[in-house]
């Protein structure tokens, strides 16, 4: 790969933005996440890889408040964070783009973008005009061709829906961004735009958890990649220390070739 994608090194000497410590959660008999620990530093993109069912989505849902972990600690800026609901996570400026997008299909883009955080007039009613204007403003930046502002998002294409979900996460000044397969529904051109956006947000100092199945894309976008298998953490490596093949064998074999060779 060409050197034009060379990343500025991430400073990992300070306090991590996010520390996940020994996170576990089970559903019935399935140990979906088993004592997983992971850090994220400001301005860093950490990729999560692994087969379907490895526990990636479940792990980040513990951080986003969608699931309540059974045990383990979450720290934000070194302080123990009490995250038990999506509303709690939002208070810590954690924004999430879910794999399912989590859009209300019957509502339009502005309603979805501001869902749960509606702008209010002095009379206590919703300020729909303001929300629509703000939506037009952010969409002009993220997806200039987006015009179906007043239509239910069910009338939008996969890419347009994805951009609504992305806009929602980006609009509210996130410090920590979670992106669960954000490019799964996108074409080549749209995928490239998301990649540019990730780089831009990273430069602004956000910490980003990125989940994707595209190993090459992950090597390009991420500073570190973590591999999960059967709910367990196989390992976390800086991308400059591993090859794509190393990553693939971690995913498939569930062993860490880098550490084992050392």
């Amino acid at each position: 790969m060409a050197q034009e994608h060379a990343k500025a090194p991430v400073d990992r000497s300070g306090t991590p933005l996010v520390s996940l410590e020994d996170i576990s959660i089970a559903f019935g008999g399935v140990q979906a996440v088993d004592r997983v620990s992971l850090d994220l530093y400001p301005g860093e993109v950490v990729g999560l890889l692994g087969h379907n069912g490895a526990g990636k989505s479940t792990l980040i849902k513990c951080l986003s408040g969608a699931y309540q972990r059974d045990s383990g600690t979450i720290r934000i800026d070194g302080e123990v964070a009490d995250i038990r609901s999506p509303a709690d996570a939002r208070r810590y400026n954690i924004e999430t783009i879910y794999q399912t997008l989590a859009l209300a299909d019957n509502l339009d883009a502005p309603s979805n973008l501001f869902l749960g955080r509606e702008l209010i007039t002095p009379f206590g009613l919703m300020d729909d005009a303001k929300m629509e204007a703000e939506t037009r403003r952010i969409m002009a930046r993220l997806n200039p061709n987006f015009r179906k502002i007043n239509e239910p998002v069910s009338a939008l294409s996969g890419g347009q829906r994805q951009s609504v979900a992305i806009a929602r996460a980006v609009y509210f000044n996130a410090r920590i961004l979670i992106m669960d397969e954000p490019t799964a529904a996108l074409g080549v051109h749209e995928t490239a735009m998301v990649a540019d956006l990730i780089k831009e947000l990273k430069d602004q100092g956000l910490g980003i958890f990125l989940i994707s199945h595209d190993t090459r894309e992950m090597m390009e976008l991420c500073d570190r990649v973590s591999v999960m298998k059967n709910g367990k953490m196989v390992g976390t490596e800086r991308v400059e220390d591993v090859t794509e093949d190393d990553i693939l064998s971690m995913i498939i074999l569930g062993k860490n070739p880098v550490r084992e060779a050392a």
């Binding site: 509303a87 019957n106 869902l115």
Partner: peptide, 18 residues
């Protein structure tokens, strides 16, 4: 708005903190 959002997608409503 929350009534309609919940009717449209209950999971999305909950993930939005409703």
């Amino acid at each position: 708005r929350y009534i309609f959002a919940t009717g449209g997608n209950p999971d999305a409503a909950e993930l939005s903190g409703i």
